[in-house]
Design a protein around this nucleic acid. Structure first.
Length: 286
DNA sequence: TCTGCATATCCAG
DNA sequence: CTGGATATGCAGA
């Protein structure tokens, strides 16, 4: 099976070239190493050595991956970075929909309660800056985004469990345009909003919609989302709902932390959450 | 019904 | 700074 598709623009490099798997693998190794140093900030040279690269190689890799210098990457991986994000973030609610410019579609009433029956889900696997991603497209737009860790079938099973009555079939052609766009900041433009639909319980959908109002380079806490929903005691329920976010990355559940600044959790692995946070630190402000 | 959460807060060492 | 107890809303079974 090929991951490339004729629908890719000829002027853009194919995603496999844009986001080489080895880059993310090195990023993962780097984050693991930082975890082992336990608070002490390591030098760039030491970090490069730990992941088996010369310092200039690491520099080039991080520049290609996220436009980051190694120094900036290391800084963005510290607890202090999360604190700074939280401190710099305004209250939820006032912000615009999302940097990705989302058009939120509503599935038919009761579709979730009926297990997604009647919905045709086309899935596809695509390279991303955070390893291989699985995307799920329907006629309502993007409905699922997750990441492959191990077997592709395991990720699919994750989604089948959420919507057991939906029809699943592979459709790389349907998901490819979403994959290209979602992971390419240059394509986050308002003229052609990304169509997206949330399939979940009323409460979960409300939480996921709140995620869309967390802007790029900003962050929030579970308690703040609960307060925004008018249920200030529901922080824990919010945490559970955030953990069920079906459209990872696009609905930025990676920007939610504990009130203490702790990373807390991530459905697709805490390492990936850290990687996404670091990657976003490399985006141009705006 | 009851159980388990990607929480938050308080209180003791 | 760490750990236990407690209040809490919701989804899934």
């Amino acid at each position: 099976m090929t991951l490339r598709s004729a629908s890719y623009s000829p002027t853009l490099p194919a995603p496999a070239d844009r986001w080489p798997e080895e880059d993310y693998a090195t990023v993962v190794e780097t984050i693991r190493f930082l975890g082992e140093t336990g608070g002490r900030p390591p030098s760039v040279a030491e970090t490069a050595r730990a992941v088996g690269l010369a310092e200039p190689q690491l520099r080039v890799l991080l520049r290609r991956w996220a436009g980051l210098s190694p120094e900036a990457f290391l800084e963005a991986s510290t607890p202090g970075h999360i604190r700074a994000l939280l401190d710099a973030s305004p209250a939820l609610g006032a912000a615009r929909a999302s940097d990705l410019f989302i058009a939120c579609e509503a599935p038919p009433v009761g579709a979730f309660e009926r297990g997604g029956a009647g919905l045709a889900m086309g899935y596809g696997f695509h390279p991303s800056p955070f390893g291989e991603a699985v995307l799920i497209a329907t006629e309502l737009g993007l409905m699922g985004l997750g990441f492959v860790e191990g077997a592709r079938e395991a990720v699919l099973e994750d989604f089948r469990r959420r919507w057991p009555k939906a029809g699943f079939s592979q459709d790389q052609e349907a998901t490819a345009p979403f994959a290209l766009r979602v992971f390419d900041p240059a394509q986050w433009r308002p003229e052609r909003p990304l169509r997206l639909a949330f399939l979940g319980s009323a409460f979960d959908v409300a939480v996921w919609e709140a995620l869309l109002s967390i802007e790029m380079r900003r962050a929030t806490t579970y308690g703040a989302i609960a307060a925004q929903l008018g249920k200030p005691r529901a922080a824990r329920a919010v945490g559970a709902a955030v953990g069920r976010n079906p459209v990872s990355f696009v609905a930025p559940c990676h920007r939610v932390f504990g009130a203490s600044g702790a990373l807390t959790g991530y459905h697709w692995g805490l390492t990936r959450k850290q990687a996404i946070i670091a990657w976003e630190a490399g985006l141009p402000a705006g």
